[in-house]
Simulated assay, not measured.
Amino acid sequence: MRKLSLFILVLLFACKSDKKNHYFDAVKDNDVALFPPAPGEWLYEHKEKGQTFEQFLKTKHVVPTKEQNVIYIQPIGKFNVLQTKQIDLTRAYLEIFFQLKTKILETKSNDIIPSHVRRIGGEGQEQFLAGYILDSILIKQKPSDRIALMGLTEVDLYPKPEWNFVFGLASYSQKTGVSSIFRLQDGELTEANFNKCLDRLLKICSHEIGHMFGLHHCTAADCVMNGTNSLSETDKHTVRLCSVCQRKLNSGIKYNNAKRLADLEKYFKANNLKESAALMHKDLESIQ
Rank of each mutant, 00 (worst) to 15 (best):
L6Y: 10
L6N: 11
F7E: 08
F7N: 15
F7R: 14
I8Y: 07
I8H: 10
I8T: 02
L9T: 08
L9F: 06
L9H: 10
L9K: 10
L11W: 01
L11K: 02
L11C: 09
L12A: 06
F13D: 09
A14L: 13
A14F: 10
C15D: 05
C15E: 06
C15I: 15
K16C: 13
K16W: 09
K16S: 13
K16D: 12
D18Y: 12
D18V: 12
D18E: 07
K19H: 14
K20P: 09
K20F: 01
N21K: 15
N21H: 12
N21D: 14
H22G: 10
H22T: 07
H22D: 00
Y23E: 03
F24S: 05
F24I: 07
F24L: 00
D25E: 09
D25G: 07
A26D: 14
A26L: 13
A26K: 14
V27Y: 06
K28F: 13
D29N: 15
D29K: 14
N30A: 12
N30W: 08
D31P: 06
D31K: 05
V32C: 05
A33S: 14
L34G: 11
L34C: 13
F35E: 14
F35V: 11
F35H: 10
P37L: 02
A38M: 10
A38C: 11
A38L: 15
A38W: 12
P39L: 15
G40P: 14
G40Y: 00
E41G: 15
E41C: 08
W42H: 15
W42M: 01
L43F: 15
L43R: 11
L43I: 04
Y44N: 09
E45D: 15
H46N: 12
K47Y: 11
K47F: 13
K47I: 11
E48H: 10
E48S: 13
K49R: 05
G50L: 10
Q51H: 05
Q51W: 05
Q51T: 07
T52Y: 02
T52S: 15
F53M: 02
F53Q: 06
E54N: 09
Q55N: 09
Q55R: 08
F56M: 00
K60D: 01
H61V: 03
H61T: 02
H61A: 07
H61Q: 04
H61F: 04
V62L: 08
V62Y: 02
V62K: 08
V62Q: 04
V62A: 02
V63K: 06
V63S: 12
P64R: 05
T65N: 04
T65G: 00
K66Y: 03
K66S: 10
K66F: 03
K66W: 00
K66H: 01
K66V: 01
E67A: 01
E67W: 07
Q68E: 02
N69W: 02
N69K: 03
N69L: 06
N69V: 02
V70Y: 01
V70I: 02
Y72S: 04
Y72T: 03
Y72I: 03
I73A: 08
I73G: 08
Q74R: 04
Q74D: 01
Q74H: 07
P75F: 04
I76N: 00
G77V: 01
G77K: 01
G77Y: 05
K78N: 00
K78C: 05
K78W: 00
F79L: 09
N80V: 03
V81T: 07
L82R: 13
T84S: 14
T84C: 12
T84G: 04
K85L: 10
K85G: 08
K85R: 11
